[in-house]
């Protein structure tokens, strides 16, 4: 959408200096044989915007349970859980990086505190929203457990993409500040 373009234009001189991206985030090898994390990673790499990255949510788990030869209900649960774990690992990594960058930049720590508060509030929202989804979902693809994991996967992925965007901008700012400090 157009707002994204405005922000991209405003941010571009800063963003161009940073290199923070999905390539930096190689997940732990998945325990599940049918789950291929590279499908998700390649989709994210090919997508230039946060909006198009949203469309990557679920690609690895989708391929995973389509490749399962039998018992799709059980495969669906296991594959969804594998992608949830994948995103969760990514999110933890990005969140840690973001705290680090903002600590470096902000002498008064206000932004870091707001970041922590935001993430805490998000976790509570995710848990209550997915609990709610478990009782109201129309997907009926499998057990309630799979619905909850699907909801967790989608919300975790969306939050990861949001944090990733922020981390990219913060890294660029940190690099700029570091150069200014070095020049003094």
């Amino acid at each position: 959408m157009r707002l994204a373009c405005i922000l991209a234009v405003i941010a571009s001189p800063i963003v161009a200096e940073g290199s923070y991206d999905v390539y930096d985030l190689v997940p732990e090898p998945a325990a599940l044989q049918d789950y291929d994390p590279d499908i998700l990673l390649n989709c994210l790499r090919k997508s230039g915007s946060r909006e198009s990255r949203q469309a990557c949510i679920g690609v690895s788990s989708g391929a995973c349970f389509r490749s399962a030869s039998d018992n799709h209900a059980i495969a669906s649960i296991a594959c969804t859980k594998a992608e949830l774990d994948d995103w969760d690992a990514r999110m933890n990594r990005v969140y840690g990086d973001l705290v680090h960058y903002q600590t470096y930049r902000d002498e008064n720590q206000l932004a870091v505190e707001e970041l922590r508060e935001m993430q805490r509030a998000w976790i509570t929202f995710r848990d209550t929203a997915c609990k709610w989804d478990t009782f109201t979902s129309r997907r009926m693809q499998g057990a309630a457990e799979s619905d909850a994991d699907y909801c967790m996967m989608v919300l975790t992925a969306q939050q990861t993409l949001f944090l990733m965007e922020r981390a990219r901008m913060e890294l660029a700012r940190v690099n700029r500040i570091a150069r200014e400090r070095a020049a003094k």
Binding site: E117, M118, A121, W122, T124, F125, A129
Partner: peptide
Amino acid sequence: RAWIAYRDAT
């Protein structure tokens, strides 16, 4: 309630 807190903080 959790959504409101999340929205405001975010």
